[in-house]
């Protein structure tokens, strides 16, 4: 069982069906929010100059791990759905940029209209087709 979970979240080989992808994404989303709530606590603040807009390193490392797991899970799902390999980059690259920007404190106020918010929206828009493909497309026959 533990081997299955490790392969599902950390291996780029093999395939994942729609149910596995949806459940895995739900688990990762919970892990992301739980991790931020737990690790992005300023009583643990070790960020440079204690800037409240910059997440703690613990939260950043945790999110990096969650992101890696999401990309690995999506790679398997896209393969099963028969989507082209480049589609994975439309998830991985914007997610990586968003992670770095968040780590730099750019997305500290995501609901306040600003250039940064627009940038975040653009990154999410790039990811949408591949994510919808993962969530909806049936397994490729044959």
């Amino acid at each position: 069982m533990s081997g299955y979970v490790i392969d599902l979240f950390f291996s780029f080989s093999d395939r994942a069906n729609r149910r596995e992808w949806l459940l895995g994404t739900l688990v990762l989303a919970l892990a992301a929010f739980g991790g931020i709530a737990l690790f992005n606590d300023n009583s643990f603040d070790e960020s440079a100059y204690a800037n409240p807009d910059i997440p703690t390193m613990a939260a950043f490392l945790w999110m990096s791990l969650v992101l890696f797991a999401f990309v690995a899970l999506s790679a398997k799902r896209l393969r099963e759905a028969g989507r082209p390999a480049w589609m994975l980059y439309t998830i991985a690259i914007p997610a990586f940029i968003a992670l770095c920007a968040w780590g730099s404190g750019l997305f500290a106020h995501p609901f306040v209209p600003s250039l940064e918010t627009l940038g975040l929206g653009a990154l999410l828009a790039v990811m949408i087709p591949a994510v919808i493909g993962c969530a909806t497309r049936p397994a490729k026959q044959g």
């Binding site: 643990f44 703690t56 390193m57 490392l61």
Partner: peptide
Amino acid sequence: GFLTVWLPQ
């Protein structure tokens, strides 16, 4: 490794 950045200073 994680604990080195997570435990309070």
